[in-house]
């Protein structure tokens, strides 16, 4: 029996924070859960010295932004698939528009605009306070890998 929209949302709000906190690499980088909706997810990455890619300018490494976008896209995929499933990244394509401002937290906003039975298609962008001035945009595909186990619902 399929869940109502309200039941799905309730489940997603349970799963979302758990998924971010329960991902060791996300926790290591300091990622935070912000919000979730059907097919949508928003995560944050607070500025941290451990993520600096350029010791002179103190700008965060592109890889840290890649991780945040991957995590946000993965959560949007989970929120986009009709059936509960684990996911795996198939492809992640990122354009970097500008350097993240040193000292500022980064937000990643992801939208799963189409999910078939096996594949979810996601667009995302990252900004550091002004959502009209993105620092990176992403396009990703995720595969449904089957029934969830543990926190990776």
């Amino acid at each position: 029996m399929s869940l109502t929209r309200e039941q799905r949302l309730e489940k997603l709000w349970q799963i979302g924070p758990m998924m971010v906190a329960g991902t060791p690499h996300g926790a290591k980088l300091g990622m935070k859960f912000i919000s979730i909706d059907i097919g949508r997810a928003t995560l944050a990455l607070p500025y941290s010295d451990a993520l600096i890619g350029n010791p002179v300018t103190k700008v965060l490494h592109g890889g840290a932004v890649t991780s945040l976008l991957d995590q946000a896209c993965g959560l949007a995929a989970i929120a986009g698939f009709k059936e509960p499933t684990s996911t795996a990244t198939l492809n992640l394509s990122i354009d970097y528009m500008r350097a993240a401002t040193p000292g500022k937290d980064i937000l990643a906003v992801a939208h799963c605009y189409k999910a078939t039975r096996h594949v979810a298609f996601i667009r995302a962008f990252a900004h550091d306070g002004d959502d009209t001035d993105p620092l990176a945009t992403a396009q990703a595909t995720f595969m449904a890998t089957g029934r969830p186990k543990g926190v990776n619902v």
Partner: peptide
């Protein structure tokens, strides 16, 4: 490193860690 895990159930490395590694 345990810190680079994305899915602790499988377990599997985080796609972002692999991505950052390749960028480096």
């Amino acid at each position: 490193s345990d810190d680079n895990i994305g899915n602790p159930v499988l377990p599997a490395l985080h796609g972002g860690a692999i991505g950052g590694f390749m960028e480096m």
